[in-house]
Nucleic acid binder design. Sequence first.
DNA 1: GGTATAGGGCAGTGTTGTTGACTTTCTACG
DNA 2: CGTAGAAAGTCAACAACACTGCCCTATACC
Lengths: 170, 170
Amino acid sequence: MAEKLRIQPMVPEDLLFLTDDQLRKGIEAMFFAYRAFTADPDLILADMDYGRAHHRAVHFINRDPGLTVTSLLAVLGVTKQSLNRVLRTLIDDGLVESRVGRRDRRERQLYLTEKGTALERRLSEAQRARMRSAYRNAGPQAVGGFRQVLEAMMDPETRSQYQAMKDLPE
Amino acid sequence: MAEKLRIQPMVPEDLLFLTDDQLRKGIEAMFFAYRAFTADPDLILADMDYGRAHHRAVHFINRDPGLTVTSLLAVLGVTKQSLNRVLRTLIDDGLVESRVGRRDRRERQLYLTEKGTALERRLSEAQRARMRSAYRNAGPQAVGGFRQVLEAMMDPETRSQYQAMKDLPE
DNA sequence: GGTATAGGGCAGTGTTGTTGACTTTCTACG
DNA sequence: CGTAGAAAGTCAACAACACTGCCCTATACC
């Protein structure tokens, strides 16, 4: 029986955080935290005719004004049809402006109007307030770890995009 | 003017992590990481007629066998009607068993069947694999911070539930 | 001029959430 | 004992948001 060789398992202290139980707790933490994370903007959006998808579009247009529809599609990871429905209501309602691309006239470059900027600010301030409070309670070291684990969890392609975005002037 | 007292703002090094830019990066990290976090189980579920809601139900029934419908409702944070649709398909398909409550015969206690346990294992193993890899790459210290920030982000009620769950024997 | 790309649109479908209203079964309390 | 109310289940309608498949126009590039 080779079993006897495992009587003293190789489990250094440092690896105890990889037990299935620890992983399960991490999984549940993600679920509960993400629910809270989206709750505040969702409340604001519920009053208008908008949903979470509108929030995401507005967020990324604000973050990178003038980006093309294709770029936005790539960042959001949804289909053209799905984005288009959301984008059209935002344009019709005067929150987003779609200008013909300068480089390439086939492209459409997306910008927030004043009205769009105002909504973005309202939504993101609600979300930032929660994030700020969580950061403050957890402290700078914890925040570093938080970001490290989240980055490690992303798909490699997404992670590259994300890390490239980090360096934008804001 | 009391304003003059603020000419030298109190911004120690330790608070630089609370800038709006840092917060925005945290927000985007949550978005991208959560998308990756759900991607693996979603692939498995897509083949069957199930969705993410089925996964969540199966997860929490596995974590706390014999829990009542009301408890599950509270943990998931959805309406009775929404859960019921999901739960009924799981029961009809023989993944979940609903037994009359022992204490209170009005209650239904939920258990996974062997088939249900098998699916749960498949789904959670996919999710754990990603979490394990992220944990391993980030290291134990980062994991501690990750959990701290997520807990701080939850609604207080959810956090209590979550922290109580942490102590279950598993 | 022909092919490929960017964008937009239509039609249909599926999952998951919501309200609101109603029923059955059972417990608990006055 | 009788009733108020909790727990569960159900029906109907609706909305948000994702998907596939297909088609069309405008523009770019070779």
